[in-house]
Design a protein around this nucleic acid. Structure first.
Length: 491
RNA sequence: GGUCGCGUGGCCGAGCGGUUAGGCAGAGGUCUGCAAAACCUUGUACAGCAGUUCGAAUCUGCUCGCGACCUCCA
């Protein structure tokens, strides 16, 4: 492949050529959702980003094992609710079993992912199904001297670990600051007094009596710490060292930093070669997040049922909107931005569909090979989907011009361009047509109406012909009169 | 307070020292009975100040503004 893929590695903060540890196999782990609520727009970003990455790597010939977890064991919530388990708390509110909540939101998450046309990961392990592996890992870390038990809980000993390891390398933290409890507004966290040092983090937490989600362990009835699940499950399915670990930038610290420490603390090896982090989606310039309460769920976007939405947006519009920005930039939500994405995407897909109607010429007036080369170059340059799309619009221009007769393409070039559009728009960027497929019956009815309209037009009876068109428009049909007939589509 | 990042034309959003990003919207034109679509043309952009350079939106410094992480968060 003469198009080497480069990706930004958070470890080095630089673009690096992607070279798999064990080509052609690629191990990819992406932090999945905590299933205690509906997935929102912010969740769509990493999963679309890494879906495109997976699609592209597969296209390049790699055998990708894509692992994405479901976090269904509760984590501490240190807000006004005083450290209740998020899932347990929600369960009590709704009078449901914790696992019912987990199931509900897991299914909902899957529905949204499917709607966005994200391919399912190859393995989607649940944290609750890997308690044994997590306990084993904690045991190993204790045995290696990097963790200690305290009152039924187990904490990672950051100080001791740092003597021979560089805790903070990924996130740029300075260990002394963490030890000092830096941050003038650092909150008083529950269980702080159990730690030897403020920088230490939990590997296992003893459950308080009201804590519903709990599992037996050598130390207490409790639950695993927040970071250990990803370490245990990535190691189980991808090995001690694998290629790419992805997730949102907000997970960089402490989550991913701690994952590195846990893996090195247990097996002595750094777990990941390339760390990739997508930036946040913002709303009014501020991060969209659960805790801020400023999120719009994917379901709300699909239905338009949210006070900030002026209309509904289809899953593909969301996908296109996200891909029109580079994954490492923040992306600001707005109705205007979404509407622009919707129109642009429809234009792109309409042109892609038009390729089958192009008539070949003996010469070409545009460089169709450049479109493909540029699109490849964009994806190779840190998965720059925004640039790739901009080049596809050059393809759109060519297609429409050829169709309009102002440009010409040879049969070979038409085939080349068609293949490019299909490859990038559908296969790699993962777009799909959302226009309802029409049955033969509907098409028959439409042809009848359009022929009546054509008759009226030929008699200059424009009142009748416009009436037919206007009424159809009200029913969300689009009618286009072209040189050799009338085309209709249903939106 | 510490670490990191951002500030681009009406809106969104690329950009990594010199060449048109692109989309949406706007204006004009072609086509059309009209419309829709498409095509062509088009606009005042790089927060501010100073510096480096033949040349800076792109590098350096300062100023202003915004944000992320440091606590659960994609």
């Amino acid at each position: 492949m003469n198009h080497p893929l480069h990706i930004t590695n958070s470890l080095s903060r630089q673009k690096e050529q992607f070279i798999p540890l064990n080509s052609p196999f690629v191990g990819l782990y992406v932090c999945g959702p905590t299933v205690y609520g509906e997935a929102h727009l912010g969740h769509a970003r990493p999963y679309i980003t890494f879906d495109v990455l997976t699609r592209y790597m597969q296209h390049l010939g790699y055998k990708v094992r894509y692992v994405r977890n479901i976090t269904d064991v509760g984590h501490l919530e240190n807000d006004a609710d005083e450290g209740e388990d998020k899932i347990a708390k929600k369960a009590r509110l709704e009078q449901l079993e914790p696992m019912e909540i987990v199931e509900l939101y897991t299914n909902s998450f899957h529905d949204s992912m499917r709607a966005l046309n994200n391919m399912p990961p190859g393995i989607e392990p649940r944290a609750s199904g890997h308690i044994i592996e997590q306990i084993a890992m904690v045991n190993q870390i204790i045995a290696n001297g990097y963790a200690y038990e305290s009152n039924g809980s187990v904490y990672f000993d950051v100080i001791n670990y740092s003597k021979s390891n560089d805790y903070g390398k990924l996130s740029g933290r300075i260990i002394e600051d963490l030890i000092a409890g830096a941050g003038s507004e650092r909150r008083e966290l529950e269980g702080q007094e159990e730690k030897r040092n403020p920088a230490d983090f939990a590997l296992w937490k003893k459950a308080s009596p009201e804590h519903i989600m709990r599992w037996p362990s050598p130390w207490s009835d409790g639950f695993p710490g927040w970071h250990i699940e990803c370490s245990a499950m990535s190691m189980k399915y991808l090995g001690e060292t694998f290629d790419i670990h992805g997730g949102g930038m907000d997970l960089l610290f402490p989550h991913h930093e701690s994952e590195i420490a846990q893996s090195k603390g247990s097996c002595g090896k750094a777990p990941v070669k390339y760390w990739m982090h997508n930036n946040m989606i913002t709303i009014n310039g501020q991060k969209m997040g659960k805790s801020l309460g400023n999120f719009i769920t994917l379901r709300e976007l699909f239905t338009g049922e949210h006070k900030l939405l002026t209309q509904s947006y289809s899953p593909m519009t969301i996908r296109f909107f996200i891909m029109q920005a580079h994954y490492r930039s923040t992306l600001d939500f707005s109705n205007e931005g979404l509407q622009a994405a919707e129109k642009g995407m429809n234009k792109l897909l309409a042109a892609a569909a038009l390729t089958s109607k192009l008539k070949p010429s003996t010469t070409s007036t545009s460089d169709v090979k450049g479109v493909r080369e540029n699109a490849y170059a964009a994806l190779n340059d840190d998965l720059n989907t925004a640039i790739a799309i901009s080049h596809l619009f050059e393809g759109v221009r060519i297609i429409n011009s050829v169709y309009a007769g102002t440009e010409q393409l040879t049969a070979d070039d038409i085939a080349h361009l068609t293949e490019t559009m299909n490859l990038f728009a559908y296969q790699l960027l993962g777009l799909k047509d959302e226009i309802e497929a029409s049955g033969d019956e509907l098409d028959g009815v439409m042809q009848l109406l359009l022929s009546l309209r054509a008759d009226a037009k030929s008699k200059k009876d424009f009142a009748t012909s416009d009436r037919i068109r206007d009424e159809l428009i009200k029913l969300n049909f689009t009618i286009k009169d072209e040189k050799d007939g009338t085309i209709w589509t249903k939106s």
